[in-house]
Amino acid sequence: MDFNADHFALFGLPRAFRLDATALDVRYRELQAEVHPDRFAHAADAERRLSLQWATKANEAYQTLKKPLPRARYLLHLLGHDVGAENNTAMPADFLMEQMEWREGVAEARAARDHHELEHLHHRLRERMNASYDELAALLDDTGDHATASDRVRRLMFLEKLLSEIDEAIAALEE
């Protein structure tokens, strides 16, 4: 196994957005069982250093592939498309309008300390995102339209951020 192999190859998984989550879990654990520093606690320095590098890489690869957004970004990166979210914030007006409406809704519910409404927003947004991820899967794995896929990834980055803000607001209410 090449240390520079990509994350999919590391776990022996096909390079695709749709992913067998169980297989990923199983192979991640199989790999860690072999390379984890606990296996080399009594070994010589050289082996301990290698083990640290490999176990770190296994963790990074697993974290990247486990969640759909970093997985999509990584896959696009392998395909030569850098999503470049920082430099490419020009989003279409209708998407930005939709974002503003969502944010107003969250701000109102937060101000009113409306737990129920925040939960409702969370579920609505989740559904919206699930549909987006389905579309993204088709773009990446079926039609191979990487340019549109990059655009959807950028949108999903906005949505993921919004979702975490809703979750933080819910958490703040519970405390």
Binding site: M1, G12, R27, E30, L31, A33, E34, V35, R39, A43, A44, A46, E47, L50, S51, W54
Partner: peptide, 16 residues
């Protein structure tokens, strides 16, 4: 040093 690298490689193969 090289032996250590080969052993690690073998461990990883074992995972496969």
């Amino acid at each position: 040093k090289d032996f250590a690298a080969r052993r690690m490689d073998k461990s990883i193969r074992r995972a496969f």
